[in-house]
Design a protein around this nucleic acid. Sequence first.
DNA 1: CTCAGTGCAAACCGTTTGCAGAACG
DNA 2: CGTTCTGCAAACGGTTTGCACTGAG
Lengths: 170, 170
Amino acid sequence: MSRASSTQPAPTPFVRLFGRYLREQGLPVTQQREAVAEVVFGTAEHLSVDDIERRLRESGERIGKATIYRTLDLLVRSRLVAEHDFGEGFKRYEHRLSRQPEHEHLICLECGGVTEFRSPEVRVVEKRIREEFGFEPSRHKLEIYGLCATCREAGVTLDEDGLTCPIETI
Amino acid sequence: MSRASSTQPAPTPFVRLFGRYLREQGLPVTQQREAVAEVVFGTAEHLSVDDIERRLRESGERIGKATIYRTLDLLVRSRLVAEHDFGEGFKRYEHRLSRQPEHEHLICLECGGVTEFRSPEVRVVEKRIREEFGFEPSRHKLEIYGLCATCREAGVTLDEDGLTCPIETI
DNA sequence: CTCAGTGCAAACCGTTTGCAGAACG
DNA sequence: CGTTCTGCAAACGGTTTGCACTGAG
């Protein structure tokens, strides 16, 4: 199947960056890899593999799950895409070419929605960790779980279930 | 097998707290549940299910994995134990009755070692998140991945592999 | 006796892998 | 044309579940 008859005429800029990475590594730039990249770079959402498969199918592409996983592996390795595990039992993928290069995540325990926010404080913490523990930070993860404004306004509350008496109210 | 002939004569204080939780919930306090709790409360380490199974076997207890999983579920629900996923492909469990009630984790990418540290900054971040996004924080996760002092001194370095040119140069 | 817990093994499910055939360079 | 990729299906591995059996009250 030739490029000319494809539904995607030309790779978008971000996809072209991925193509460059592949060439740098001596790897073939295939139609499937571009299609997967196109989907991931085409949204600001945090997509699961099923999400990606669905969107590919919707745009007429029929690409196997194995290929999607293998392409995501390359995208993560290229550092153009970040892999997240929000404890849902599967991973989510987010491209890193947004306006917020480094950000943290708020995850709503009710609706599963993910919001991004910046936290310059982490820098300070990393600096302290380096000095205090001799630990050399490479990457980090700051996730805050709770109730988003929408769910809270809808009257949702989180029911606790632990020991009735506070263990250590610290 | 009666309690009297067991290697663990009487439940330790932490295990007794778990017993109290079970009673509160109207659930039986069984020998297996106490044995699993004993292992988890008996260390400051972050244990995997295999670790727990191994330690139980070493002390003569033969408890099925299913029971361990089911007991850990209860321990987590009681809020006496915290569940962690450091991206190793399995979960780890840590009891929350140490001297550091709330702490974050440093994870060494080389040796897998986990160090705990406190970060009061998170409180500040949560406060800001509440005000700015209307998001009600419930729990959080701050993990810093990198190289621990030991591995760094042993000459280990982390090799990067991304695009050769900095990404932000879009 | 009754009811929940336990242990085994099978099921689950997201992810990985092996391999024959198709594409890339 | 050789090498790598793709797609399918089977394998994998941590976790969960179904079910007959055991044990506590």
